[in-house]
Write a protein that binds this DNA or RNA. Structure first.
Lengths: 160, 160
DNA sequence: GCTCATTTGTCCGTATGTATC
DNA sequence: TGATACATACGGACAAATGAG
């Protein structure tokens, strides 16, 4: 029953390897970017997971990609971090700090609620909470329990 | 190690699909009702989560069920979800008040715990809490924090 | 707003049986 | 026989979303 596909001189997993490398060369996939999920690749190449994983393993071995479980596979190598979504919290914190610096939020003004930020930034509560903590640690904001988080006074902000 | 189970002509996930469809046909599961959790189904069918999820995916694809993360899967289709949301707190309150009036619970006797009621009435804690609040408001019961909810004295009860 | 538990989503590694070439 | 490929199945781990308290 298996082996629906006619024999090819070159194994399917090799085709998938080439396809992904092609996407990278063509700029379709950039360093640090997330590859499609294994399931996605199965569908796209009409191959079994077994085959897709074999292709991914080859790409891992030659350093073309790296995999973080269970997040997925990324264009690598890992030690050359790129577009990589740093930690999401880090990224949101930087973005909010920038807005504070630009005066979008004034000292002692309330920052948007967690839920609002989740909505607006399209991320998780956890990331937002992490970002808030970073802002506090760095002097950008302070939190009043049960009330909200507010912009700190300018003299608390990090220098430049 | 895996594949403890002897080869069957029909895959396990297909059996699970049929079992669930059977429950729906037999009225055991009604539209809008919540399916058991994936873990539950694993236990019940002695299958791995992988296998259970494959079954659920098939049911999702043919529109038999829909899934809302992380609430669970429901008998579908989604645009006709009804029966669920249990019955409102109002109804449970009425039912408990009736039992009190009939003497099933005597004044100063403890009412069943939230968990017991959740179990017995097949609803959510939220509904039970809502019912308890209504009972308090109407003079049927009083709550001692951290202890429980008790039947109020007869002279506090609403007239007829 | 916060913490925690529950549940689903995804991925990982492994294993087995079968079919083709 | 061995390489390729597929379908099935188990188990564990972490991520993300949501609701309860």
């Amino acid at each position: 029953m298996p082996r629906t596909r006619p024999r090819t001189p070159v194994p399917i997993y090799a085709l998938i390897v080439d396809a992904i490398k092609g996407d990278i060369d063509s700029g379709n996939l950039r360093p640090g970017q997330k590859l499609p999920t294994e399931q996605e690749l199965c569908d796209r190449h009409q191959a079994s997971r077994d085959t897709v994983r074999r292709a991914l393993e080859i790409l891992r071995e030659d350093g073309t990609i790296y995999t973080r479980r269970p997040e997925g596979s990324f264009v690598g190598p890992e030690d050359a971090p790129q577009i990589r979504e740093a930690r999401p919290a880090e990224q949101f914190a930087a973005s909010l700090a920038e807005e504070i610096r630009r005066g979008v939020y004034q000292p002692d003004e309330a920052l948007p609620s967690e839920n609002e930020l989740v909505e607006r930034l399209g991320t998780s509560k956890k990331s937002i909470r992490g970002a808030m903590e970073l802002l506090r640690e760095r002097g950008w904001a302070y939190t009043v329990p049960k009330i909200g988080t507010f912009v700190a006074a300018r003299d608390k902000w990090p220098a430049a």
